[in-house]
Each structure stands twice: as C-alpha cells, then as structure tokens.
Design a protein around this nucleic acid. Sequence first.
DNA 1: CCAGCATAGTGTCCAAATGACACGATGTCA
DNA 2: TGACATCGTGTCATTTGGACACTATGCTGG
Lengths: 229, 229
Amino acid sequence: MSYTYEYPRPALTVDCVVFGLDDEDLKVLLIRRGVEPFSGRWALPGGFVRMEESLDDAARRELGEEAGVRPNHLEQLYTFGTPGRDPRGRVVTVAYFALVKLSDHVPHAATDARDAAWFSVWDTPKLAFDHADVLGTALQRLKGKVRYQPIGFELLPPKFTLTQLQRLYEIILERELDKRNFRKKILAMDLLEELDEVEQDVSHRAARLYRFDHKKYKQLEKAGFNFEL
Amino acid sequence: MSYTYEYPRPALTVDCVVFGLDDEDLKVLLIRRGVEPFSGRWALPGGFVRMEESLDDAARRELGEEAGVRPNHLEQLYTFGTPGRDPRGRVVTVAYFALVKLSDHVPHAATDARDAAWFSVWDTPKLAFDHADVLGTALQRLKGKVRYQPIGFELLPPKFTLTQLQRLYEIILERELDKRNFRKKILAMDLLEELDEVEQDVSHRAARLYRFDHKKYKQLEKAGFNFEL
DNA sequence: CCAGCATAGTGTCCAAATGACACGATGTCA
DNA sequence: TGACATCGTGTCATTTGGACACTATGCTGG
C-alpha cells in the first residue's frame, strides 16, 4: 500500500514529555529506541499521527502503547519542525506535555519489550533527535504554569501532606519556600480539603493529609478566581 | 510530479493571526479566499509548508506573499489538527500569532490581487475552516501575554504617548485602567525613554512622546527582572 | 485676545499582600 | 523516658495595589 500526493508532505509525529514526581526530584519518562536512527539512545515516547485521530488522541495512544501511561493532565506544548531535526527526512513533531502521579506508574514495566524508565530531569542521558530542546521547553512551561494553575496536584497522590506539596513547588521552581508563608497562602485559597487522616509509617510526628478540591476550583475559576502561588 | 509515501500523511499548513492596533480597537488581518473550499469567505492568511523551510519561515513567507506584511513579533500559537477541520482531507495547521504596527501597513494594498483587510477582532465576518477557534485562541494568548511581556509595544509606533499605551492595554484587556496608577507603574519600570518631543496636530495640549528601550529591557530581563503590568 | 474646550500631568492615603522570622507540640524509637 | 525528627502555628514591618480630583497647557472659535 502506498500514498501519493501532488506536493511533498512532511511526516507528522507526536512526542510526549511526561513528568512525574519523586520524593526528591522531578522525573521524566524516556524510552530506549530499538531502531535506527538513534538506535539505543533514549528518547521521548512518541510516534506517527494516524489519519483518523486527533493530535491529542495520538499523544494519548502513543503514551499508552509505548509506556503504559495514562496521564491525568495532557496539553499541547509546541510544534518542532526545523528541517533536519530527523535524519530520515522532514518530520514535524507536535510535542505534548503530561503530568502523572508517579505512584500510579511505579512498576513502569516496559510495556512491549521496550525499555522505559524515569530519569531525573536534571540528569538525563543524551537524547535522540532534538528531544533535549523539547524537554527544555517543557520544563520552562511547567515552571511557568505551575504557579498560575493548580496542575501541580496532578503529580501528587490524591491525599498528600502540605510538606509534600511544598516540596513539589520547591523542586519545580528550584528555590526554597518559607513553610509558614506557604501554608498561609495555600490554605487561604480554600481549595484543600483537610482530611481526618494523617500520613502512615513515618518515624516521627505524622502530618495531616489533604485533598485538592477540583470541583470547588472549577467553581471559583468560573467566578473569576485566579490560582496563584 | 508526485510524491509517494508508505503511510498516509496529513497536509501541513501554517496560518497566521496578525493583530494591529487602531485608535479605537484591535484589528485582525483577514484575506478573502478566491478558491474552494470556502471561496469568497474571509480567512486567516496562511498556506502550505514547504519541505525545505522551517515553520517560522513558512509563516513569514506566507505573510509576505499573501498580505505584504512583515511582523515585528511572530510566535507559534498552537497546532490545530482535528480530523475534519478541512473538507479537502486531513490538514494539520500550525497557527502563528503576529503583531504589527498598523501604521506600517495602512495602505495594506492586497498584494497579489487578493482582498486583504483589517477587521475589528470583536466583529469579524464568518471565517473559513476553524479559523474562528484559531482567532479565539490567539486573543486569549494575547490577553494573557501582554501583561507579562512587553510585546504591546510592537503594536504602537516607535514614539508614542502614555495615553496611547494605556489605551492599548485597555483595548486588549477589555477593562479600564486608572491613569495615575498606570503611569506610576509603567514609569517605575524605567523602560521608557522620555523624548524631547510632543505629539503633533492635536487640537489640545500635546502629550509627551516616549520610546520603549528594548536594550534596557533585555539587560534587565537577564538580571531577573519581570515585566508585569 | 480671551473664553471655553479637551486632554495632559501629577500625589496621597488606606487596605491588602508579601516576606522575614522561632518555638512549642507530637509521635517514634532506642 | 529521653532524644530525635518533623509538624504546625502568629506577628510585625514593608511593599504593593487601588481609589480618588484638581491644576496645567495648548488649541479653537467667536
């Protein structure tokens, strides 16, 4: 089977930058390539867009197929199309940016015999194609966005402590925050539901657990409320 | 001549949302289509990406060819790829977002016999394809971005009055601003060069002219300064 | 030439938000 | 039961944001 067109067309792919959060740092999901070009190199999960699927669908499909991941949050990042970015010829890629709860993907068993692994975003191996640029762009976006939209919660388990939440922001923003001021501000938004539970299995005083109230956020958002850390 | 591939490929286009600023409102540049589909309808300027050019280059080329426009500011906006958005088949478009000084394009003579015209963004004719969505997305982006990056100046002539600048923000943000507070804030940034000139040909007291200091901004930006209105 | 006009340009005050800062409380473990 | 690790909490000083009104200037028309 082959397809013929009157004018040449670039190939179209999607690539996904999937972030997850560890106790200590921000991770990105990479796949080891099994074929040329860049065989053996680590790369972002991704693949060709099919004719009948939307770009978002393509990103979700590839994430499922290549890495067994279903992101909570998925958004389009940027489209990379410099000629020469793929040695096989003109390939334009629509990059996506996804957040997952790492706890949901701990086993991260390589789904179809492919190597998939989480790497610290500050210390990745050399990446295939222009994926280092893509990752850089995604990091910038995450840093910029996390302060104005409550997407950070997509990286935490449903129930979390305020200390965990603060650590999240410290890791992403790469600076320390004051504990009291942080709590004051985040609690003042009235978007966290205080639970009657505390964390388990810690060898010191256990912290209270909270849950992010998505419903309340949606309401407040409509009413003109702006999340801002 | 024809081109054959093993798998089907979407066609790839760029479309540009070009904004210009009038005394009274924000304008967008539209082109009247001369061919099917949507012949006779107004649409965003755009066209097919060539194999040897980058996406940015394609956007600039199309703007020059179709509308005789050279934007000061051009940035990628979003990629639209829902199947069915173009009746001819699968067409994915990388949308761009551009700002021009309307004064540079007053004659806006349709370049190659095509109709090109500026419309108020609040009152456009019915657009071809999903271009209304694209325009909406661009407007959102402009509104969001103008407060955090000094891109508004790209819409004004090189020398402008503070009142003009304030009007710009009022028009884009769709709300009134306090004159004294606005001036206090914008002057405090120390990014405007006060000129020894006043506006001409007004039938009342003439306002002082200012110029935006791009160099100083770049320096301050490196030093961690954040523009914020 | 002067009266009327349209817009320019300017400062204060109050309220709210920000940011620096330290210690007692609680639960675990040895 | 004492040492430890982390939890959880409030004040104050400073900065920032937003409301608010009048005089100055230059042109115009009678």
